[in-house]
Write a protein that binds this DNA or RNA. Structure first.
Lengths: 353, 353
DNA sequence: GCCTAGGGTGAATGCGCTTTCATGACACAC
DNA sequence: GTGTGTCATGAAAGCGCATTCACCCTAGGC
């Protein structure tokens, strides 16, 4: 554990530390014979260059970072249990990590990942930021003002959510477009009319964007255009989805006119609704169509399989790296805002397949 | 992108750099009023401490690392396609990453991940090693001699595979025990007798350990004990599994006496075999039982569902971090070698469920 | 034989921070 | 009033490396 340095290697091989450094940074600039002596000494001593020192001296690290929130995700755990196959199911973060890792590897970067420890010191971002050449942040992981500060120092790309800081690179998925297309499908291809939408809280930009897509499609079709979702769930969890479905059924029983389709701002809720409907003896899709959003793996496994909109999450990670690499190469380039396309996945719960 | 430093902050707030440093490292040692001045200056300037410099000066990084091989894994990609749900399925590496990330987060560490770029410079390990407080290596990612060298400098834990260097911490899964128990189940609970085992190459320690478990169970039951697997596959892929199954069937046709059960050193091969058997019109499990090893997600989805042995891969990652943290706290502790228990998953392909 | 290029090497400096160690300013007790 | 602690801060010395810049040596041209 002693940690030999360039000085040790230099001494042992009878050269200066400059030469040792060159052997690693620019081998061709050193005579072969000298190089071999140095490498041999390094081997014997167990020398490994300190990337910290190297980074300090050369102002570049070869590492990209990712910060994501501490969703110590009870839902996800539960989901894993549902499928009775622990850890077989990829989470959102897993997929982004995989995407970034692949892309980073292609470009010769390593990847540093850190989740904000809820209640921990706010140091997280700083810790990452001080250690990488650039990094990606999932929406709402880091206070906007911190980002503002840090982005003056190195490239940052924001993932998902709205573009909070307009001089940053930014990638989101086409929430609104996706929901619009999904809704169109229900209206046009299945001839459904009484559509209700279950959203999230107002401060969830994704949920709001999806609602907008829903409204747009209603407007297009000449259907009544709601100002607000028919219901807002606080948590967007499966349990809340069940509750929402029951509330809507009760409301319909009281007021008459059961809806022909329930659209949910995410798959979790839609799946909860599926359960609730089954309990109530309401058949899906015969009596009512159900649709979600996200395309989580579970959506394919439930019965009936859930019609949804699939997000290219892994690509989100890959594109993030591409953007970082580009900006590193050309720091003055104009900020970019990408919107990744999503695709409607038609399955049994809307009457397809 | 200017990158303000302690000097800038110190100047602007009228203190020395030492005080700026203390504000971040040990806030209580600075008078509140001074501290506020410094923080304000930092905010205005957009100062973020350089973790590189900090690491250099304090010889500690707060980062743990993971190196894994570049299996740019055609099988895995194919598997994802099979389930027609891109990137829904977790790979081995994803699961380890998830486990390590969770555990690292608990202990306040960030995680640096790097896959060895095949054909790239061998610098990978050095890059990671020079940047972390300790790291985990998947078996056969890094040449033993490199590890030997690096482990003199910082804690290293080896994951999976045999213990190549005996002064390193090491975690493996109970390959042999698992296969033994699986084999016992086939022999004892299903009364099977003619068992064949399809292994991997001799230099695959996992496959060999599994074969030993198979032998042990045969010996216990008083069945003939083979010296070698009935067949060795070069790649342990699905395609090789198909081929293996066909070879074994052909051999049986020539020599008479079709086996009652085929055991494969991993799930991939077993799943390939399932396909081959179906093509040949051999019913599973009525005519022949099939079993794999690993418990990959696909094993649950094929028909008949595959009996296998599930590895706690995610826990492997978690335990790795625990070991690193422990060793960091107590560098002189005796090297540890853990063996994680596995569990036999009985499904349709052996006649259960 | 002298001069010139150019490649190989070393000395020295600085990257941004942590960390003694020393200093100064006070508060308190004698 | 002098002495003794305490607390807040500054000065300075590295941490391990990359990188000029200057230097020397050798090979080639004349």
């Amino acid at each position: 554990m002693s940690a030999p340095t360039v000085y040790d290697v230099a001494e042992r091989s009878g050269v200066s530390i400059a030469t040792v450094s060159r052997v690693y940074r620019n081998p061709d600039s050193v005579r072969a014979q000298t190089r071999d002596r140095v490498l041999e000494a390094a081997r014997v001593l167990g020398y490994v260059p300190s990337e910290n020192a190297r980074g300090l001296a050369s102002r570049t690290t070869g590492v990209l970072g990712l910060c994501f929130p501490d969703y110590s995700d009870p839902d996800a755990e539960a989901e894993a249990d549902d499928t009775s196959d622990d850890s077989a199911v990829m989470l959102y973060s897993d997929q982004i990590i995989r995407g970034m890792e692949r892309a980073a590897r292609r470009h010769g970067y390593a990847l540093l990942i850190a989740a904000s420890l809820k209640g921990g010191p706010e140091s997280l971002v700083a810790k990452v930021a001080g250690r990488v050449d650039g990094f990606a942040v999932l929406a709402r992981t880091v206070p906007t003002e911190d980002l503002e500060v840090i982005s003056r120092r190195l490239p940052v790309v924001m993932l998902a959510g709205p573009r909070e800081i307009d001089h940053l690179d930014h990638i989101e998925v086409a929430n609104s477009d996706g929901e619009r297309e999904l809704t169109r499908h229900l209206i046009r291809d299945h001839g459904l009319r009484g559509l209700v939408f279950v959203g999230g809280e107002k401060d969830s930009p994704d949920a709001e964007a999806r609602f907008r897509g829903f409204r747009d499609a209603c407007a297009e079709a000449g259907l009544p255009v709601p100002d607000e979702p028919d219901l807002r769930a606080a948590m967007m969890t499966q349990a809340e989805g069940e509750r929402a479905a029951e509330t809507l059924l009760d409301r319909a029983d009281r007021e008459g006119g059961r809806p022909q389709a329930m659209l949910f701002a995410n798959d979790q809720m839609a799946i909860g609704a599926l359960h609730a409907l089954e309990r109530r003896g309401v058949r899906v899709p015969e009596d009512i169509a159900v649709a979600g959003f996200d395309g989580i793996p579970l959506s394919r496994m439930v019965r009936p399989a859930l019609t949804t909109v699939r997000q290219p999450i892994r690509r989100l990670g890959e594109e993030a790296v591409e953007l970082l690499v580009q900006r590193l190469a050309e720091p003055t380039r104009e900020p970019v805002s990408l919107m990744l396309p999503v695709s409607v996945t038609r399955r049994a719960s809307c009457g397809c397949g």
